[in-house]
Amino acid sequence: MFLINDSYAYLVVLAGVCTYFWRAAGVAVAAKISTESALFSWISCVAFAMLAGLISRVIFLPTGSLEATALWERLASAGVALIVYFFLTRKNLLLGVISSGATLYALRLLS
């Protein structure tokens, strides 16, 4: 069988099992605590703050291919997206997201 020689595929599945551990733990914990409890509202705060932290980190201090772009290019793209989403359209996600990509693309072509 082709699977036997593919050590990367084995590693991937093991990593999937490890990732699922946290997902399942979340279901189990959610079943134990009430949504009215202080613990629940703290965990929700952590979830929201975590994602917001991730987004702002990618814009201010990116790793990977976005490192090649300038901070002002990323800020301009995010700013255009926010303006399109909140002010120019009535919260149109598609136009907001595409406008940010188009802004970055145009800025890269010009520079």
Binding site: A15, C18, T19, F21, W22, R23, A25, G26, V27, V29, A30, A31, I33, F40, I43, S44, V46, A47, F48, M50, L51
Partner: peptide
């Protein structure tokens, strides 16, 4: 990879 997936714990608790 396991450490990077810890975020699923609070996300799932808040979501379920």
């Amino acid at each position: 990879v396991t450490l990077s997936a810890i975020r699923f714990l609070p996300m799932t608790v808040a979501f379920m």
